[in-house]
Design a protein around this nucleic acid. Structure first.
Length: 273
DNA sequence: CATTTCACCTGGTGGC
DNA sequence: TGCCACCAGGTGAAAT
């Protein structure tokens, strides 16, 4: 489900609602896949702690837990393809595939739901480990020079490069396709062969699309919802993603779909060179 | 090393 | 209706 704008929307929503709240009790479901850190260690880091803040790092949601205002641990949630992080009341019906429930002093509850179980939950004990940092550059604020540097010499398709989280952290399939369309660049072009002007167009298109998507609460293609269960609206602004065979909104040519880097990739053969 | 492919899961859709 | 193939917002391990 979630790329940078969706994760940002959820992180902001959880931060607004739960900052200053305190974890009373943690419940975990029986599936093992979501646990990148042993459940017992996660319980230890969470229970009794105050939520000092919640932020997005790449596609990860980082909840800082502490005592007396001092950070002691980070609970890191990655939503995979179908993960949801919801703030609810304990009485609300529990959705299928709920893997974690955190009851809070305020009487609310935070839930992690993920049908496909590609999502991951981890805990970093800040007395033993450093805080979580992204592997790649931040797409929203990367400078023109750094953007050029990221792709220089790369012998892979620009679409594949955009999806590589160690280069940029946060771009996924929707926003890769949408930014390449707006920059007029074919997804298969080799990253290292793009001209300076093309890469600058791409950076501007990417940042525009990401900012606009955050404003609209993300893209709800099938089942994405924010921390309150509310859908986003950026899917109404998609120009190529999941529009295979439909007319290009600029030139009328049918939008094409190819497989690239194992992902469905959508582009206009006329507008993108 | 850099790059590519595929397995990991459930659920929805569309063809027969 | 049932069955099956294929597809889906991601990523890491294995292969090349």
């Amino acid at each position: 489900m979630p790329e940078l704008p969706e994760v940002e929307t959820i992180a902001r929503g959880v931060d607004e609602r739960l900052r200053g709240d305190r974890v009373v009790e943690v419940w975990f479901g029986g599936h093992t896949e979501p646990f990148a850190t042993a459940p017992a260690k996660q319980v230890e880091g969470l229970e009794g702690r105050e939520i000092l803040g919640v932020r997005r790092v790449g596609k990860h949601i980082v909840c800082t837990l502490g005592e007396g205002g001092k950070p002691r641990a980070e609970w890191i949630v990655h939503l995979g393809m179908t993960g949801r992080l919801l703030v609810t009341t304990p009485e609300g019906p529990v959705a299928a595939h709920t893997h974690a429930r955190l009851t809070l002093v305020s009487g609310r509850e935070m839930r992690f739901v993920d049908p496909r179980r590609f999502g991951r939950l981890a805990l970093r004990d800040l007395s033993q480990e450093a805080g979580f940092v992204a592997a790649g550059a931040e797409p929203l604020t990367i400078t023109a020079d750094d953007f050029l540097r990221v792709f220089r010499g790369r012998k892979l398709a620009i679409k594949a490069a955009l999806l590589n989280q160690t280069l940029l952290s946060g771009v996924g399939n929707i926003y890769a396709d949408e930014s390449l369309f707006r920059a007029g660049i074919r997804p298969r072009r080799m990253a290292g062969r793009l001209k300076r002007a093309e890469l600058e167009r791409l950076r501007e298109a990417l940042q525009l699309v990401l900012r606009k998507a955050i404003e609209l609460g993300g893209s709800s293609v099938s089942d994405y919802v924010d921390a309150d269960g509310v859908k986003g609206f950026f899917q109404l602004e998609h120009r190529v993603y999941m529009r295979t065979g439909e007319a290009c909104l600029v030139c009328g040519e049918p939008i094409r779909r190819i497989a690239l880097a194992g992902r469905g990739t959508h582009y206009c053969p006329v507008c993108q060179r």
